[in-house]
Design a protein around this nucleic acid. Structure first.
Length: 435
RNA sequence: GGAGAGGUGCCAGAGCGGCCGAAUGGGACGCCCUGCUAAGGCGUUGACUGCAGCAAUGUGGUCCGUGGGUUCAAAUCCCACCCUCUCCGCCA
């Protein structure tokens, strides 16, 4: 959520920054929010004034009654009642305006970082690192899609997954299942040096999913368990971001860095049939997510570090990769600045997004009400509170890395060699062969 | 799911419908005292928000689990919901 006060102090600046996202609907929403804010403050001024009068009269009534001056007290009560009625009318109007304003603000996306590249779509995302390790041409035995190789090897059984759960669910078997779990363990171990490992709930409340920005705007993308008013997390980001909702953290304990393995559930509404072969896009997948709560001054370095970590994960597996920066027109609603790590899949013949690392500014923290007490140069807490900055990124998204491994490490005989980095987790399997 | 108890400030804990943003104790911070430490004394100690001000600040409003209601006036009365604890039931 953006700061309403910015609409008062620098409306044109906010408008210009958001215009870079290239969506006029945002700008009209911004106009409406500004008008609602003006109106709500007009009402508040009048209402609070009435409340102050009622409070003061009520005190007088109390004293008069104590002194036995019943007639005077009753006269005052009548006055107060009249004021109270007007106050109630105003209050009802305020509630309406405030609610409309809150809704408007919940839909307005984050302001892009000034250095984020301009652009209209994913076609405009610049490559900022790499490609690293990419060959000009891949030999024929690597140019086989993972769904073919994996099905032949018996490590992917999507037909039966569909029987069990319907379209766009996947199932790994045998060494394939082991490989998926090995990737999780690898992703966690790689980042345990600075992150606390957390195993958060996978079902979360509406408030939790609202804090990250998934709700209310993207309700159709998430699985809802309506009977219990819970949602399946689309990513562990959702659970982790709400870890400290409504809390005030000490400035000197920041940054707080956490990571979690979790399943991720996505309805993928509207994307059926698009990049859905094999393991490319599914309703449920596993992922290791990193997340940081930081002071604003710590955020840029953390963003760089997290991008490095995401890249290191695929680099350590020997996969060709590149890093792209997301342009203003392709940026997610809550994002302030975002980098994606992509891995080359020689069989599918495409770059696969395997990690998205983002800096959210205080956009999520404002929604979740996560604050910190700043510390001055003398080490003493400074008066007041500030919203933390949040950052997150996939440390390792299992299915697409799994797919890239099966394609990249495919041998001429159709077997798949396990990358060295994963061997400790593979129960002695160095090469996956048909069993 | 059933029965009972409870949710108050950083923590513990009191609170008659008006004098309650809230006693008291603890903690934390500052100062005093002491050679140092301990003990003791004095003081400070919430968040959000409207308006005014460059600002320090001033001045209104809101917050005693959440949301409604009664009243001139609600932490205090009424209703619903949420959460915690104990017992029972169920269960990996």
């Amino acid at each position: 959520m953006i700061d309403v006060r910015l609409l008062r102090t620098d409306f044109d600046g906010v408008r210009a920054a958001l215009a870079r996202r290239g969506d006029d609907a945002i700008l009209s929403s911004l106009d409406r929010a500004r008008d609602l804010d003006v109106r709500s403050r007009e009402i508040i001024a009048e209402r609070d004034d009435l409340r102050a009068k009622v409070k003061s009269i009520s005190k007088d009534v109390g004293m008069l009654r104590r002194d036995g001056k019943v007639d005077e007290a009753e006269a005052l009560q009548a006055d107060s009642r009249a004021l109270g009625e007007r106050e109630q009318t105003l209050d009802a109007e305020y509630a309406q305006v405030a609610d409309a304003l809150r809704t408007e603000l919940l839909y307005i996306p984050n302001i892009p970082h000034h250095a984020a590249p301009d652009g209209a779509s994913d076609a405009d995302n610049p490559v900022v690192r790499g490609p690293v390790g990419l060959l000009d041409e891949y030999p024929e035995h690597q140019r086989v899609p993972h769904w073919e190789t994996a099905t032949d090897l018996g490590i992917l059984d999507n037909e039966r997954a569909v029987k069990i759960s319907g379209a766009m669910f996947t199932m790994q078997r045998g060494a394939g299942a082991t490989l998926a779990r090995a990737l999780c363990q690898y992703g966690l171990d790689l980042n345990a040096d600075v992150h606390e490992e957390i195993r958060p709930p996978s079902l979360v409340t509406t408030a939790t999913l609202t804090a990250t920005g998934q709700l209310p705007k993207f309700a159709d993308d998430a699985y809802a368990i309506e009977r219990d008013d819970l949602w399946c997390v689309p990513t562990a980001e959702a659970s982790l971001t709400s870890l400290y909702n409504d809390e005030i953290l000490a400035g000197d304990e920041l940054p707080i860095r956490v990571m979690a393995f979790s399943p991720s559930f996505r309805r993928e509404a509207g994307s059926a049939g698009r990049d859905t072969r094999g393991m490319l896009r599914a309703h449920e997948f596993d992922k290791v997510e990193m997340l940081a709560f930081a002071r604003p001054d710590q955020a840029p370095a953390l963003l760089d570090d997290m991008v490095d970590r995401a890249a290191r994960a695929v680099e350590g597996l020997g996969l060709p990769y590149r890093v792209i920066e997301i342009c203003t027109g392709d940026m997610g609603q809550s994002h302030h600045r975002t980098y994606d790590v992509e891995v080359w899949a020689p069989g599918a013949g495409t770059w696969l997004e395997v990690s998205s690392v983002s800096w959210f500014g205080d956009y999520q923290a404002r929604r979740g009400n996560v604050r910190f007490r700043p510390v001055g140069d003398d080490g003493q807490p400074v008066k007041g509170t500030e919203f933390v900055h949040t950052l997150n990124g996939s440390a390792l998204a299992v299915p697409r890395v799994w797919a890239a491994i099966v394609e990249h490490y495919r041998n001429p005989d159709g077997s798949v060699t396990v990358p060295d980095a994963l061997r400790p987790y593979m129960r002695g399997i160095d090469v996956i062969t048909a069993s």
